[in-house]
Nucleic acid binder design. Structure first.
Length: 793
DNA sequence: CTGGAGGATCTTTTT
DNA sequence: GATCCTCCAG
C-alpha cells in the first residue's frame, strides 16, 4: 500500500499544499461528514470556522474536547492541511495523549503524522533541538527538572557568599521562573524587581544561572519556551519556516497560558492567523504559576477580526449543580460571562454539611462511601476534591481503616521520588557523561567515601580545564591530588561508568539498567536499609526498569521522562478518587465530595495575602471548577476545628458557601455528629444569636448546635467574620483580612497575660501577632493558637 | 568522611 | 508530623 498519502509526506515538504478534497476525497468519503451531524449549532460553528482567529469559550461540561478533536479531524478531512501542518498545543501530557487517542478513533491512523500535537514544552524542545546552536546550546542539551535547578542555584548563591537561610534558593528559583513565564531574559528584568531577592542580586544571579546552563548544555522548563521565543525573535528566517509550516494552530486551555506562551503563539500565528484557542476564563486556576487570565480576556483585541463562539450548553450536570456554580462564579468581576444551561430536569440540591473537626468530616464521607459501595455504585465515579494536599491525610486514614479502595491522583510524582531520581542519574551519566548535575547527585550514593572535599577538588579541576566534572574526575585519578582512599573510589566509579557506556549498544537497555543499579551497589544500599519505606523503594526501582520497556533505547527513555514527569499506571479495580481541586480540572464524576470549605483554607489564606482580590477570584474559580466536576451530586462540607501543623485552629464557613444560591443548596448536620469529647467547655453566656449582622454566614447557626456558639471565643470569631464580610464590598482591603485584622482594642490580648484555653488549659501569652497568639501552656508546652480560642484568666 | 541528634520549615497547585 | 538541613562528635 503505497497509496497512503502520509508515507509520502515528509516533514520538510513545507511548501506542499494538499490537493482539493484531501484525504477524505481520496478515501472516497462523502462531503457531509457524519461527525458533524452530532454536534449542536455552536459546537458546529466552532468546528467549521477554520479560517482566521477563533476563540471558543467553552464552559464546563460543554463538550470542549469533542470540539477540539472534531475540528482537527475536520481540518484533515477537508484537505485544508496535512497532519504535519497543524500545531496543536496542550498543557499537560495527559491532555495531549487524550487528544491523540480521540482523533485516532475519529479518523484512524493519521494521528501518527501529527508530530506537532503536544504540550507547549514538548513542542518547544522539538524546535529547540533543531536550532540549538542558534541559542547557544548543542542539540543534545539536557533538560533540568526543578530539583536540578535548585541545586544549581544553590551553587551560585554559595559562590556569592549569600546567606542561604535568608535567601533560599527556592525563592530565587521561583523568581526566575516568574521572569521566564513573563518572557523576560536577564537583561529585561525590571530594575525594581531585581531587588526582590538578596538586595538586588536577583537579576545578576539569573544571568549567571543562564550562563551556567549554557556551559552545562542544559535548559530548564522555562527555557524550553523562553529560548524558543528568543530563537524566533533573533532569527526571523527560522520563525518564517515555522509560520509557513503551521498552517493551522489549535490551543487548548488558553486561559492557562502565560505571557511567554502567549508571545510564542502570537509570533507563530502572525502569518496566516489561523489560530483557534479554546478555553474558559472561569476555569483559570493557574495564576500562581504565571498564567494570565488576561490573555483570554484580551483575545479579541489581540487578534483582529477574531470570532468568539460560546459553548454554553452543558451536557454534564444537573440544573441545581449548574445554578449553584453559576451563582458562585457570578461574584467574580473579571470575566467574559457565560450562562450555562442544560436540558436536564432531574437532580437534587447541593448538600452542605457542618462537622466538628476534620476527622469527623472524613468519617462522614467514609460512611457515605460505604453506603455507595453497598448500593453497588461505581466507585470510579466518586471523587473527593481537596484544596490542599494535607487534607488528604485524614481522608486516607479513614479509608484505610474502613478498607475502602481509593486512589490518589496527582500525589507525589513517580519520577520525583528520591530513589527514582538517583537511578535516573545513574542512567543519565551513563548516556551523557557530561551531565554534571546527574554525576554530582550520585557520585557518593551509595556512600563510597567521595565527600564534599573530593567533589570540590574535582570541580576545581573541571572549571580550570573547562571540562565536565566526569572528565575532570578521570583526570584527577591520574594525579596525586587525592589521597589514596578517595582516589581508589573515584577511579572505580569512573571506570564503571565507562564500562557501562560501552555496553549501551551491546545489550537491551532494561538489562543494562538493572546491571548498573546492581553493580553500583545502589540496589544493595536499599536492601540494607532498615527503614519501613525501603521495600517500597526497591519496588519502585523495579517499576522503573519495567517502564523502560516501552522505549526503544536509553536515550529515548531519558528524553521522555525529562518532559513527562508522571507515569501512567493501568488500573482496573474500582476505586474512589482522591485528589486536589487543581488536578481535577477536566475530569468529571457522578458524585463529588468537596471538604474543607473554610475561610483560610478555601479561599486559601496565602492566595488572599499574596494576591488580594485577584487571588480571591482565582480561589472562587477553583470552587467553580470543583462544583462543576459533579454530574449528579455534590456534597460540600466544612469543619469548625481543623488541625494544622498539629495544632488546632478554629475555622469559619467559607464565604463561598454563602455565595451559593439558597435555592440550590440543602443544609444538613453531619450524620455522625456527636461533637466528640472535645467540647467548648467554658461559657454558657446565653443569647448568642442576637446578632443579625448582614455579614453573618447562614451556615453558622443552624440547629441543633446553636447553643454551642455563645462562648466568648465564638462571639469574637463571629465578629471577625462579619468584619471580613464587610470588607468584601471594598475589595482593596481583602489582603490580610481575618487572621491579621485588628480587633477593637478591648478584645486584644497582650504579652504576659495569663489565659485559659479550652483544650490546652492555662498558659501565658508570650507573643501576639494579629489574632495569632503564641502561648506557653503549663501542661501542653508552647503552641500557636487563635485568640478566639482562649479566655482571660 | 560518616552518622546521629537536634532544629527549622513547612504543606496550593505543574511542565 | 515529616522531611530536610545543619552541626558536631567520632
Amino acid at each position: 500500500m503505497t497509496s497512503d498519502p502520509l508515507e509520502e509526506f515528509s516533514d520538510d515538504d513545507l511548501g506542499y499544499v494538499p490537493k482539493e478534497g484531501g484525504i477524505a476525497a481520496r478515501a472516497g468519503l462523502t462531503t457531509e461528514a457524519p461527525y458533524l451531524a452530532s454536534l449542536n449549532p455552536e459546537q458546529r460553528a466552532a468546528v467549521e470556522s477554520l479560517d482566521g482567529p477563533v476563540l471558543v469559550l467553552a464552559g464546563a461540561g460543554t463538550g470542549k474536547t469533542r470540539v477540539l478533536t472534531t475540528r482537527l479531524a475536520h481540518l484533515l478531512n477537508t484537505g485544508r492541511a496535512w497532519p504535519g501542518q497543524i500545531l496543536a498545543v496542550t498543557f499537560t501530557n495527559k491532555a495531549a495523549r487524550e487528544m491523540k487517542d480521540r482523533i485516532g478513533t475519529l479518523i484512524g491512523g493519521i494521528v501518527e503524522g501529527m508530530q506537532w500535537l503536544g504540550t507547549f514544552h514538548s513542542i518547544g524542545v522539538k524546535i529547540l533541538r533543531r536550532h540549538a546552536e542558534l541559542v547557544g546550546l548543542k542539540s543534545d542539551f539536557s533538560i533540568l527538572d526543578t530539583d536540578d535547578q535548585i541545586r544549581l542555584l544553590k551553587q551560585i548563591i554559595q559562590a556569592h557568599e549569600i546567606d542561604e537561610k535568608r535567601w533560599p534558593a527556592r525563592q530565587l528559583a521561583s523568581h526566575i521562573d516568574g521572569w521566564k513565564n513573563r518572557g523576560l531574559t536577564p537583561d529585561k528584568v525590571p530594575a525594581g524587581e531585581a531587588h526582590a531577592y538578596a538586595d538586588g542580586k536577583g537579576a545578576l544571579f539569573y544571568g549567571e544561572y543562564q550562563e551556567r546552563l549554557k556551559v552545562l548544555n542544559a535548559a530548564d522548563f522555562g527555557d524550553l519556551l523562553l529560548e524558543c521565543l528568543r530563537l524566533f525573535l533573533e532569527n526571523p528566517d527560522v520563525l518564517e519556516i515555522y509560520r509557513k509550516k503551521f498552517k493551522y494552530m489549535l490551543v487548548d486551555e488558553y486561559q492557562d497560558t502565560n505571557v511567554a506562551q502567549y508571545l510564542w503563539l502570537r509570533l507563530l500565528a502572525g502569518g496566516h492567523k489561523n489560530i483557534c484557542c479554546v478555553g474558559d476564563d472561569d476555569q483559570s486556576i493557574y495564576g500562581w504559576r504565571g498564567a494570565e487570565v488576561d490573555n483570554i480576556l484580551r483575545f479579541e483585541k489581540d487578534f483582529e477580526g477574531a470570532k468568539v463562539i460560546r459553548l454554553e450548553r452543558n451536557y454534564r450536570s444537573t440544573p441545581h449543580i449548574l445554578a449553584a456554580a453559576s451563582g458562585l462564579i457570578a461574584n467574580n468581576q473579571g470575566r467574559l460571562g457565560k450562562t450555562l444551561h442544560t436540558d436536564r430536569e432531574d437532580g437534587e440540591p447541593l448538600l452542605v454539611r457542618r462537622h466538628w473537626d476534620d476527622d469527623e468530616e472524613a468519617r462522614a464521607i467514609g460512611e457515605d462511601l460505604e453506603q455507595a459501595q453497598r448500593r453497588q455504585e461505581n466507585l470510579d465515579e466518586i471523587a473527593i476534591l481537596v484544596r490542599a494536599s494535607f487534607q488528604m491525610r485524614s481522608m486516607e486514614d479513614r479509608f484505610i481503616t474502613l478498607g475502602l479502595p481509593y486512589r490518589v491522583i496527582g500525589g507525589p510524582r513517580f519520577y520525583e521520588r528520591a530513589e527514582i531520581r538517583d537511578a535516573l542519574a545513574y542512567l543519565k551519566v551513563t548516556a551523557q557523561p557530561d551531565n554534571d548535575l546527574a554525576f554530582e547527585r550520585i557520585i557518593n550514593v551509595p556512600k563510597r567515601g567521595l565527600g564534599d572535599v573530593t567533589v570540590r577538588k574535582a570541580r576545581a579541576i573541571a572549571s580550570a580545564n573547562g571540562c565536565s566534572l566526569y572528565r575532570a574526575s578521570r583526570m584527577i585519578v591520574e594525579t596525586d591530588e587525592l589521597s589514596a582512599k578517595p582516589r581508589g573510589a573515584m577511579r572505580k566509579v569512573v571506570e564503571e561508568f565507562s564500562r557501562w557506556r560501552s555496553l549501551i549498544d551491546a545489550m537491551p537497555h532494561t538489562e543494562l539498567a538493572e546491571m548498573i543499579l546492581d553493580e553500583s551497589g545502589y540496589t544493595e544500599m536499599w536492601q540494607n536499609d532498615k527503614s519501613p519505606q525501603a521495600p517500597g523503594r526497591l519496588e519502585n526501582l523495579k517499576e522503573l526498569v519495567r517502564s523502560m520497556e516501552e522505549f526503544e533505547n536509553l536515550a529515548g527513555f531519558l528524553e521522555h521522562i525529562a518532559l513527562v514527569m508522571d507515569v501512567e499506571r493501568a488500573e482496573t479495580d474500582q476505586k474512589v478518587n482522591l485528589m486536589t481541586l487543581h488536578s481535577a480540572k477536566g475530569l468529571e464524576f457522578d458524585t463529588v465530595f468537596l471538604p474543607g470549605w473554610e475561610e483560610g483554607l478555601f479561599p486559601h489564606q496565602r492566595s488572599l495575602d499574596e494576591n488580594g482580590r485577584a487571588g480571591l477570584e482565582e480561589e472562587r474559580r477553583l470552587a467553580y471548577v470543583g462544583i462543576t466536576r459533579a454530574k449528579r451530586k455534590a456534597v460540600l462540607s466544612f469543619a469548625q476545628n481543623r488541625r494544622v501543623h498539629n495544632l488546632w485552629q478554629n475555622a469559619l464557613p467559607s464565604r463561598f458557601l454563602d455565595e451559593l444560591p439558597e435555592a440550590n443548596v440543602e443544609v444538613a448536620e453531619s450524620p455522625s455528629s456527636y461533637g466528640g469529647g472535645f467540647g467548648w467547655g467554658a461559657g454558657s453566656g446565653g443569647g448568642g444569636g442576637g446578632r443579625s449582622g448582614l455579614g453573618e454566614s447562614r451556615f453558622e447557626n443552624f440547629e441543633p448546635f446553636n447553643n454551642t456558639y455563645s462562648t466568648p471565643g465564638w462571639q469574637r470569631a463571629k465578629e471577625r467574620h462579619s468584619s471580613g464580610q464587610a470588607m468584601r464590598s471594598s475589595p482593596s482591603l481583602i489582603e490580610g483580612e481575618l487572621v491579621t485584622t485588628a480587633e477593637p482594642s478591648a478584645e486584644r490580648f497582650v504579652e504576659g497575660e495569663i489565659v485559659n484555653h479550652e483544650k490546652f488549659g492555662p498558659g501565658v501569652v508570650t507573643h501576639v501577632e494579629g489574632n495569632k497568639l503564641t502561648i506557653e501552656f503549663e501542661n501542653a508546652g508552647r503552641k500557636r493558637v487563635l485568640d478566639s480560642f482562649v479566655t482571660r484568666g
